[in-house]
């Protein structure tokens, strides 16, 4: 089999514990990288700030969808029982909005949950594969490994300089993420 030119998709560097990872993340942020991420066995408090993450828009999306769903179901219950198929139930008015409060609430919760899950999947730019899986060392991330990965798509990515930078900020086992798929 003929050896082919392997593409470099990014660089992976390992760090020594959560505190070092936070420091490294802050330096990465200050350097102005865009297409990069940190990987750790568990969530680290303060990482969002160190990475310079902005507040998620998910809350607003959930609130808007909950309101929309609630108003929608309120209209629907009104239409079914007061317009389309009028029916007197236990002597109450056709449009007995009090009876619809549980439905209103349930639909608000339902749409909130859907928006939270699918909105999150949309916002995090999820993918089925990530270049970090080319690294064998990366398996440690589920045990005791703390990593920073930079993707080659990053505008300030440079194969040599980025590698040097990662070593400067304390990264060990710095390796190129290469594959031939």
């Amino acid at each position: 089999m003929e050896a082919t030119e392997r593409t470099t998709y990014g660089i992976l560097a390992q760090f020594d514990g959560p505190d070092k990872l936070i420091e490294a993340a802050a330096k990465m942020r200050d350097k102005g990288f865009k297409q990069w991420d940190v990987h750790s066995p568990y969530p680290i408090h303060g990482m969002d700030g160190a990475m310079g993450e902005e507040r998620s828009r998910l809350g607003l999306m959930v609130a808007a969808m909950a309101l929309l769903g609630g108003l929608g179901i309120l209209y629907f219950t009104y239409w079914t029982s007061a317009v389309d198929y009028r029916f007197i139930i236990s002597g109450k008015p056709y449009f007995s909005y009090i009876a619809y409060i549980p439905i209103f609430f349930a639909v608000c919760v339902l749409l909130s949950a859907f928006t939270a899950v699918f909105g999150m999947l949309g916002l995090v730019n999820s993918k089925f594969h990530h270049p970090v899986f080319y690294s064998d060392n990366f398996a440690k991330v589920t045990d005791d490994g703390f990593f920073v990965s930079v993707l080659a798509e990053d505008p300030s990515f440079d194969k040599v300089q980025t590698k040097t930078f990662l070593e400067e900020i304390g990264g060990t086992n710095v390796e190129y993420l290469e594959g031939d798929d």
Partner: peptide, 12 residues
């Protein structure tokens, strides 16, 4: 408060 009211309102 709503749970108390709703059931009483409904049963009448």
């Amino acid at each position: 408060a709503l749970s108390q009211f709703l059931l009483i309102w409904y049963a009448n």
